[in-house]
Each structure stands twice: as C-alpha cells, then as structure tokens.
Simulated assay, not measured.
Amino acid sequence: MKKFPVLALVALAAAVGAYGGFAFLHQGSAGMLRPDDETVVARGELLYARNCASCHGKSLEGQPDWQTRDKDGFMPAPPHDESGHTWHHPDQLLFNITKLGVVKAANLKDYKTRMPAFEGVLDDGDIIAVLSFIKSKWPKEVQRRHDELNRVYARRTQEAQR
C-alpha cells in the first residue's frame, strides 16, 4: 500500500510562498477563511455541492482508501472533514491548490491527480466560500488548531520576507 508521499506534502507547503504567501490575510485574522460568516458559508455550501461533492463526498467524507493510489496511479479524493489532512494546511495553500491545482500549486510535474484547477471556474471569493464552508464543518477544537497553524505560518512567512 502506497501512502501519500511525504515529499509531496513538503513540496505543497513550500509552494505556498511561491504563489503570494498570505495575499488575502487580514491584519489580526487567523487566516483568509470565514467559517463564522453565515452568508459566506451558505454560498460555499452551494458551490461545494455543485463542484466538489461528487468526489469529496456530500458529507466531506472523501473517497474510500483515499491514502492509496488507485490502479491508474491516481490518489483518490481525500476527506475534507476532521478525519482528513485538509486542516493540516494553511489557508493560502488550500486556496492555491483549489485555484491552481495540486500540480501547479506544488510544482509536482509527475504527480497524478484527477482534481481540476478551478481557476476560471470559480472566482477567488467562490473558492474562499467553499473553503469556509468546509472549515465550518470541523469541530471547534480543530478550527482553533487550524487558526493557530495560520498564525504560525503567517509569522514565519513575514520573518522569511525580511
């Protein structure tokens, strides 16, 4: 059984800086997502149902055996609930993966994925709404941990730019 390569995760995290860091991060915010904004979350829920649920599941459960490549070498769609790894990544990386696709966001030329890039399909506000909806479904403790991840990432990004 082949697990998601650790190198790919490292490359994904490293790629965030290459695409603008926390371009949408507001001063004092834990990140760009707005899981407490009912209007944004409701819009995100509709967009998720239309664009994401067919692969990632109606209840964010992902595809079975999502950590093992399928017979064609593709990684199945991971869950976006707390059982998956979505909340282990800062907002900007989640945004970049959604907008640009995994391959471009992480510069992984040989990575096989069925996840499309949503640039030109969803605008930036739509992507933030979808990701905000996903985050709104996580338990509050997971949301707090994700907020802290965003704060640490933002601090490290600012330090690296000095």
Rank of each mutant, 00 (worst) to 15 (best):
L7R: 09
A8N: 14
L9E: 13
L9W: 06
L9N: 13
L9P: 11
L9A: 15
A11R: 10
A13M: 02
A13G: 10
A13E: 01
A14P: 04
V16C: 07
V16K: 04
G17K: 01
G17W: 01
A18N: 03
A18S: 05
A18Y: 01
Y19A: 06
G20N: 05
G20I: 13
G21I: 10
G21M: 04
A23T: 15
A23Y: 08
L25M: 05
H26T: 12
H26K: 10
H26E: 05
S29L: 00
S29T: 09
A30C: 10
A30H: 12
A30L: 02
G31F: 00
G31S: 01
M32S: 15
L33E: 14
L33V: 14
P35D: 02
D36N: 07
D36W: 00
D37K: 00
D37C: 01
T39F: 00
V41C: 00
V41F: 00
A42T: 01
G44D: 12
E45L: 03
E45G: 15
L46R: 08
L46C: 03
L46W: 01
L47Q: 12
L47T: 11
L47R: 01
Y48P: 01
Y48W: 10
Y48A: 02
R50V: 09
N51A: 06
C52M: 07
A53S: 15
S54G: 15
C55L: 03
H56Y: 02
H56C: 07
H56E: 03
G57F: 02
G57W: 01
K58M: 10
S59D: 10
S59F: 04
G62H: 10
Q63C: 08
P64T: 14
D65V: 12
D65G: 13
D65T: 14
D65C: 08
W66G: 15
Q67R: 13
T68D: 05
T68S: 10
R69Q: 07
D70E: 08
D70C: 06
K71E: 12
K71I: 13
D72E: 14
D72W: 05
F74H: 13
P76A: 11
A77T: 07
P78V: 08
P78H: 04
P79L: 06
H80Y: 06
E82D: 06
E82S: 14
E82A: 13
G84S: 06
H85K: 03
H85E: 02
H85S: 09
T86I: 10
T86Q: 04
W87Q: 11
W87K: 04
H89A: 14
P90Y: 04
P90S: 11
P90V: 13
D91I: 11
D91N: 12
Q92H: 11
L93P: 11
N96Y: 07
N96M: 07
N96A: 14
I97T: 15
K99L: 13
K99D: 09
K99P: 12
K99Q: 15
L100G: 11
L100P: 14
G101T: 12
V102H: 04
V103C: 02
N107D: 15
N107R: 14
N107E: 11
